[in-house]
């Protein structure tokens, strides 16, 4: 059980809450309190829109512990519209192949379960953007 570790990440995992640097407007995800761009303190919370595009991707066939049931699955580096690169699973891919540049949007999904008795862990994944 690693309940506290997951609990601390609720906000960033459920709804992509990162930070924005009050000095240079740089957006940070995950939150790290120091702006990687200008080196100043950056603790103001910022909720990302969840929109972005596929920067790179790969397919996982040999999954690490806890993810065996979902193989094969696609992991991508997603470039958020606000700038940061985020690593996450892609989901709901349907029949269309993923390509670099594919527009995606964040959804909150089940990441894994901590065994049959442990907690269910939820967090962000990305799916192909709906053509609204």
């Amino acid at each position: 059980m690693e309940v506290s570790r997951h609990w601390r990440l609720n906000k960033q995992r459920y709804s992509l809450v990162g930070e924005v640097c009050p000095h240079c407007e740089h957006k940070l995800f995950p939150p790290r309190d120091i702006c990687p761009d200008c080196g100043e303190d950056a603790r103001d919370l910022f909720e990302f829109s969840g929109k972005g595009s596929v920067y790179s991707f790969t397919t996982v066939s040999q999954a690490p512990a806890g993810f065996e049931e979902s193989v094969p699955y696609t992991v991508a580096i997603v470039q958020l519209d606000e700038g940061p690169l985020v690593t996450a699973q892609l989901t709901d891919l349907g029949d269309k192949p993923v390509e670099i540049g594919t527009p995606v949007e964040m959804v909150t999904r089940k990441l894994r379960s901590d065994g049959d008795q442990g907690m269910l862990i939820y967090g962000y994944k990305f799916r192909p953007a709906f053509a609204a």
């Binding site: 049931e69 979902s70 699973q89 989901t91 709901d92 909150t108 999904r109 089940k110 990441l111 939820y122």
Partner: peptide, 8 residues
């Protein structure tokens, strides 16, 4: 899907 339930 595999990663969906009533919560998501």
């Amino acid at each position: 899907g595999l990663d969906e339930d009533v919560i998501t």
